[in-house]
């Protein structure tokens, strides 16, 4: 098992490099101009070279000096700025993830245990409606309702309570996914023979559901968490702009407007890195939860907690 994790951790950097390469090449091929310089440096390195050599120069700078280049207009290195904004977004994402799990998983269990009943159908209807609404519309709804009509909350982010609306927006945009997959996974597990067998042994229903069934159902749930993080990050980006928060969203918007490929590329690296780490963490959680798998996993194994294709 140790070999497996070593392998996964070692693979993070190469994976990020590959992803960066793909994006780099795509961006370069789409811009269409021959002399387009992808990344601007303080010392003007890499100017006028071919795309591939520009890429290698870039990777070199990133890996050795942690230098993501400079902003072409101000000539200031973007690394620190980017880290600051990114850190803010990460904190929001983390908090949102926690909240989402705290709300979504119990809701999914609730629906699964009462499968087919009115409660279940209500939950399904609500999740479907929520998941169909894009995040800024949710944000709009929040603002309309809480700020305008009820006059409870401010939009100005003066103190802690003002984070309710942005957090609420982000959480709402992903909670439906978690609820749905929890419900599906729990339904599948509750149908299994060992659940009936455990009940017949006299184990209390509550224990069977929350201890035994849930533990078994955690596998698909944990798998989905990796992709949820991606959506959460995007949600944070949108919400940043809406509520004027100092996160990645604002930073990126400016970068796009001024066509600073540096920033966008760097952000892509950060995000890709985060998602890889989340993937490894998800696998770790999976193995903690499912000890029976521990013996079967070696450095040869592929990814354990695989995300689901398409919709849950």
């Amino acid at each position: 098992m140790l070999g497996y994790f070593v392998k996964r951790v070692l693979l993070i950097i190469p994976t990020v490099i590959v992803v960066t390469l793909v994006i780099f090449l795509l961006m370069a091929s789409l811009t269409g101009t021959d002399t387009f310089r992808m990344v601007t440096y303080a010392d003007d390195a890499g100017t006028g070279n071919s795309v591939l050599s520009q890429f290698f120069v870039y990777i070199w700078h990133v890996l050795t000096k942690f230098d993501f280049g400079v902003d072409p207009s101000t000539r200031r290195p973007i690394t620190n700025e980017l880290l600051r904004h990114y850190g803010f977004t990460m904190r929001m994402t983390g908090a949102a993830l926690l909240l989402t799990l705290l709300i979504g998983v119990p809701a999914g269990i609730f629906a699964a245990v009462r499968r087919g009943s009115a409660g279940d159908r209500a939950v399904s209807a609500v999740t479907m409606v929520i998941s169909a609404v894009p995040s800024f519309c949710i944000a709009f709804g929040f603002v309309m309702f809480f700020a305008v009509k009820l006059r409870w909350l401010n939009v100005l982010m003066m103190d802690k309570t003002d984070y309710i609306m942005p957090m609420g927006t982000i959480v709402l945009s992903v909670v439906a996914s978690i609820t749905r997959i929890t419900r599906t996974a729990m339904c599948e597990v509750l149908d299994k023979q060992y659940v009936t067998a455990m009940r017949s042994l006299g184990l209390r229903n509550r224990s069977v559901v929350y201890r035994h069934a849930l533990k078994n159902a955690l596998v698909p749930i944990v798998s989905v968490i990796s992709s949820i993080v991606g959506y959460l990050i995007c949600g944070c980006i949108v919400v940043d702009r809406f509520f004027s928060l100092p996160g990645l969203g604002m930073y990126l918007a400016n970068a796009i407007r001024s066509r600073t490929t540096n920033t966008v590329l760097a952000a892509a690296i950060f995000i890709s890195f985060t998602m890889c780490c989340v993937g490894v963490l998800a696998d770790a959680v999976y193995l903690i939860v499912n000890p029976a798998m521990r013996e079967n996993v070696s450095w040869r194994s592929g990814r354990l907690a695989r995300g689901k294709e398409g919709r849950a």
Binding site: Q193, Y194, A197, M198, S200, H212, V289
Partner: peptide, 12 residues
């Protein structure tokens, strides 16, 4: 039960 292969909780 009939099928002993799947009558026990696999994660405990």
């Amino acid at each position: 039960f009939q099928d002993p292969m799947s009558s026990l909780d696999p994660v405990f």
